[in-house]
Design a protein around this nucleic acid. Sequence first.
DNA 1: ATTATCTATAGATCTATAGATAATGC
DNA 2: ATTATCTATAGATCTATAGATAATGC
Lengths: 198, 198
Amino acid sequence: MGETSRDRQREATRQRLYEAALGIFRRDGFRDARVDDITLVAGVSRTAFYFHFPTKEDVLTELIRRTEAPIAVAVSELHPDAELPTVLETVTDWLTRTWQDERALIVDTMAIGLRVESATSPEANPNGLRAQLAARFERAVQNGVLHDAQRPAALADLYLLNCMSAMASWAQGEGRGLIEALQLANQLFLNGARRRLG
Amino acid sequence: MGETSRDRQREATRQRLYEAALGIFRRDGFRDARVDDITLVAGVSRTAFYFHFPTKEDVLTELIRRTEAPIAVAVSELHPDAELPTVLETVTDWLTRTWQDERALIVDTMAIGLRVESATSPEANPNGLRAQLAARFERAVQNGVLHDAQRPAALADLYLLNCMSAMASWAQGEGRGLIEALQLANQLFLNGARRRLG
DNA sequence: ATTATCTATAGATCTATAGATAATGC
DNA sequence: ATTATCTATAGATCTATAGATAATGC
């Protein structure tokens, strides 16, 4: 049941296709990217692409999975009693580092994330970012930091969707840094937009 | 410069294609919808579709424009001093009425909205929903109801993106009503998720 | 021998564009 | 006569699937 030569071969081909696809997406844009160009770079037949990725979108789905994984790890490694702002700041910092030089891919990736994130259950991956965040939010509810009116998992999803929206918006505008856009999302999520009077 | 017979003819064809496309999208899903099926229903040649809509996505872009317009009007007709929660409630009510029976179209439409909304400037349509909301937010800042740290237009965009995220999430989950999902977005936007202590 | 990985091929669908028709404005 | 609207057609691209090859496990 160890990794066979066939497994290594398959993964190597898949990885070449993955990298080639992202390269073509960056060059031509996701929509105008041709599978033929991808497979030309990867050095395989056209249909090999479809063997590994049912559609072009699945490449970006994998990009989401790969970039989310280290963020989930970073959150899981925070102190169990870390304050919620610290948790969100960690997410924000990682998202910024991951995406600020990938502007060309952000909008399409986030549009796909909008589907994937809400089409799959967080329990599908208990170590994933959504589950990690939901656990942190649950703890915050227990500690009285968050309202208990909403399911922690629902709050976690909405928070992540807010981050994705903010990133998509940033990628298309000519505003300030990505970090500022995400910090605004954090601030709104934690404190709302309303000014406290008195 | 009045409306000619040619204008009427073009608009009639465009309208037939628009309705036929939405019907096929509802039946087959946006991605699996075939342009041939659309033009069969509309009674025109295949390429007539592309004359009116460069891509299938443009049909949903038009759906966004058409459904946003009456909401923008409703907001503009509110009393100039209407409180912000009232404004957001108006948006939420309209979105709910518009979309709660169009579940099949929501996710794809919102994914496209994510691009369109952030790719175009609000000033492009001064009577549009984004501009209307930005004006309301600006007034709220002047009245001291909102923090003045963020540009009203940026807040308006983020608010609308939050609504779209909430709708996409609702459309795919089996949660409660759409209105509740949007009210959560409103509540978070206005008050944040953090519990006020003391 | 069986199966996973990849290739070759046929048919479906889309995209670009040349051409037909009828309305328009001079 | 010119132009806008729509059609017909050719070529590009995608999708489904049959087939080839080589690794695997018995």
